[in-house]
Every structure is written in C-alpha cells, then in structure tokens.
C-alpha cells in the first residue's frame, strides 16, 4: 500500500480511485479470495498436512479416469456445439434482419432459461415414457434403449445448454465479415465451396475459437446436468467433488480435486489470453 501512495503522490487525487474501490476490494478479499484460499489450504491440511490428497489423485485410477472422462466430455461437447452451432450462426448471418432477429430471440431465450429447466426438459424428452423413446420403439427398436442417466443424455443436454454461447460467439464474428470479401473471392474465380473454405471459414475462425473455449471451460466444471442426467458410473469432476463432500465429508480430497479443476480452467484461460487476449472472450 505504501508504494501505491508513493507513486500516487505524483498525481493529485490518486487516492480517490482507491477510496472508491475500497469497499468492493475488501468485500472480494473477504468473500472471494479468502474462501478460495481456504480451499487451497484444505487441500494440503485435511485431514493432515502434506500433499497426500494430491498423491492420492494420481495413484487412484478412479480419479484419473474421472479427469480423463471430464476432459473428453468437455472436448466432445465443445465439438458438437461447434458442428451444430456453425450452421445456425451461418443461417443467422445470411438471413434477412427479421429472420436473424427471430433466431437470435430463440437463442437468447434458451440462453436465459435456467440450466435446471433445460435439464428437466431433457429428462422429459429422453425419459422412458418420453417422445424420443416412443419414436424409437415406433421405428422398430424393441425394446427401446434406455436413454436417461447415460453419457448420451448428459452430453446431449450439455450441448443444448451450451450451444447459445457458441452461436453468439460465432454470430458476432460472422456478422462483421464484409460481404465484399465474398464477392471479391467470387469475382476472382472462386466457386461457392472455395469462397467458403478459403475466405468465410478462416474469417469466422476467431468465433469458433472463442465459442469452443467458452464451452469447453464451462463444461469442465459442469455440475448440475451431469449429476442429474449422467450415468453414476461415469461421473465428471464437479460431480465427484460434490459426492466427496456430501457423502464422505472428505474436504481434503474434494479441495485437492477442486484445485486441479481450477488449475485446468486457468490453463485454458491463460493459453487463450496469450494467443488472443482475454478481453475478447467475455464479448
């Protein structure tokens, strides 16, 4: 703080911003940094001091399996969101303003609807008495497969829940692609596919990276949907952390896993930041 004051002495009123910031900074220290620090602390002190919890994470193949599972699920969800989100964002970018606004309305509506509501909707859709099972049975799949509480159901729901992030990232980039560039490519002899491949796709790449990073990161720490819809045998990290606390009250192990999860998220963010700058990610 002293150095702050010293440097501020050159500019009169340099204290004012800190006075304005003080309440919030104190609040965040007390109710954000300290609790976070406590998690870090618990990971090396509960039940006893040392790196035992972390050693346990690496030695027990269950944990490793969960981390790999989480990572692969997040990757898959990000990929699915990209593959599905791209045509929709493209449709929006190429449509008349009215149609684009209508589609954006839909995406926004989904975006703002509680995760729980959307998770519940998928329970209805995929349930044993739901329309999809009925349709499969009608098509001759007898007995129809059990869809709920599988990796498929949780992945599908997560894709549905996270796809708005992807569409918004893509759309904001696509909308800024100058149509003259596409015409230029065409006038220079590019067929429609080449125009897309050589011009549109590379120019929309920033949106793909943004969207995929967001979805991947959110998915890494996803708790609600995997817990409610996923297979109990194929948990994800957040779910396992929850189990550790609720069922075993094992704060040390849970904290250690939380720290690894946090670190993974930070790594993704840092890599993104190094390459593209963070301020772009939050839109």
């Amino acid at each position: 703080m002293l150095s702050v004051l010293n440097r501020g002495a050159a500019a009169p009123g340099a204290l004012k911003p800190w006075l304005l910031l003080l309440p919030l900074v104190l609040f965040l220290c007390a109710f954000f940094l300290v609790p976070l620090g406590q998690v870090a602390l618990m990971s090396v002190t509960e039940p006893e001091f040392g790196l035992g919890n972390y050693a346990h994470l690496t030695s027990d193949s269950l944990y490793l399996q969960v981390f790999i599972n989480t990572f692969l699920t997040a990757l898959g969800v990000a990929l699915c969101c990209l593959l599905l989100g791209y045509p929709l964002a493209y449709l929006m970018a190429q449509s008349s303003p009215r149609v684009a606004a209508l589609l954006m309305l839909l995406v926004t509506m989904s975006f703002w609807t509680s995760f729980l509501v959307r998770t519940y909707a998928w329970m209805v859709l995929l349930g044993n008495n739901g329309p999809i099972t009925a349709a499969l049975a009608f098509l001759g799949w007898n007995p129809p497969p059990h869809l709920l509480f599988t990796r498929l159901s949780s992945t599908l729901a997560m894709v549905h829940i996270l796809i708005p992030y992807m569409v918004m990232s893509l759309y904001s980039v696509m909308k800024r692609i100058d149509p003259a560039l596409l015409r230029a490519a065409e006038s220079l002899g590019a067929r429609p596919w080449s125009v897309f491949r050589q011009v549109y796709l590379p120019l929309s790449a920033p949106g793909m990276v943004n969207g995929a990073t967001l979805v991947f990161m959110i998915c890494l720490g996803f708790y609600v949907t995997p817990v409610l819809l996923g297979s109990p045998q194929e948990q994800m990290v957040a779910g396992l952390i929850g189990t550790q606390i609720e069922e075993f009250l094992d704060f040390g192990q849970a904290s250690a896993m939380a720290m690894v999860l946090l670190a993974s998220t930070m790594i993704v963010l840092t890599v993104y930041h190094r390459r593209f700058g963070l301020d772009r990610l939050w839109g």
Partner: peptide
C-alpha cells in the same frame, strides 16, 4: 466466379 471479370471494390476487399 466463371465470368473472368476483375473487380476492384470500394474498400478494396483484400482478404
């Protein structure tokens, strides 16, 4: 794309 006409656009439209 098959007209073989070169165009210079208003704001150049360089990729």
């Amino acid at each position: 794309h098959a007209r073989n006409i070169g165009i210079v656009f208003q704001n150049y439209a360089l990729f």
